[in-house]
Simulated scan of single mutants.
Amino acid sequence: MFTNSERFAFDTRRHHAFATTGNAYDASQCDESIKTGDTLIVLPERVIAVAMTWPFAVTAEAGKLHSVAPPRKGETLADIARSLHVTTADFEHAAELARCLGFPLDSNLVPLLPA
């Protein structure tokens, strides 16, 4: 039998789908239901992104969203996540969704993400 802590041991993820990356950017700035770390999905542009003040794509295509700068020597995914005020799990979830959809990932992130 599961204890309550085992039964409810899961992370929730919020996804927001948009017609364009411009719409996703605008919504992330003014829609209070979109929180930092939420996943933004823009199927027509093949973009998966992470919401924050400056929403950034984890996919090769970014559209009107930001891209992550190339990592500095020795910089880890945890370092980048911390600097952007998101979690490594936010990056990893968005990247896994992009992979499942067949969207190419941002080449700057590929070496930092789990295979």
Rank of each mutant, 00 (worst) to 15 (best):
M1C: 09
N4W: 08
S5I: 08
E6C: 14
F8A: 10
A9M: 12
A9K: 15
T12W: 06
R13D: 00
R14A: 12
H15V: 10
H16M: 04
H16C: 01
H16R: 00
H16Q: 04
A17C: 06
F18E: 06
A19F: 10
A19Y: 07
T20I: 12
T20N: 08
G22M: 07
G22R: 12
N23F: 07
A24E: 07
A24P: 10
D26N: 14
A27R: 02
A27H: 03
A27S: 09
Q29F: 00
C30E: 12
D31Y: 06
E32D: 10
T36W: 11
T36D: 08
G37P: 07
D38Q: 09
D38I: 03
T39R: 13
L40S: 09
L40T: 06
V42P: 09
L43Y: 13
P44C: 05
P44G: 00
P44D: 02
E45C: 12
E45K: 08
R46F: 13
I48F: 08
A49K: 04
V50T: 03
M52P: 02
T53L: 09
T53F: 11
W54D: 14
P55G: 05
P55K: 02
F56M: 04
F56S: 05
V58Q: 05
A60W: 01
A60P: 11
A60Q: 13
E61T: 10
E61I: 06
E61D: 11
E61W: 00
K64N: 05
L65P: 01
H66I: 08
H66S: 11
H66Y: 15
H66M: 15
S67T: 14
S67V: 13
A69M: 09
P71I: 05
R72V: 14
K73Y: 13
K73P: 14
E75Q: 12
E75Y: 00
E75I: 00
A78T: 05
A78L: 03
A78K: 06
I80G: 00
A81Q: 01
A81V: 01
S83W: 09
L84I: 06
L84T: 07
A89E: 06
A89K: 15
D90M: 12
F91Y: 03
E92A: 14
E92L: 15
H93S: 13
A94Y: 01
A94E: 02
A95V: 03
E96W: 14
E96H: 14
E96T: 15
L97Y: 13
C100P: 04
L101A: 13
L101C: 08
L101S: 11
G102Y: 02
F103Y: 02
P104F: 01
P104Q: 05
D106R: 00
D106P: 02
S107W: 05
L109H: 01
L109V: 03
V110G: 05
V110R: 00
P111S: 06
L112E: 13
L113N: 04
L113K: 00
P114N: 05
P114D: 09
P114I: 01
P114Y: 02
A115V: 06
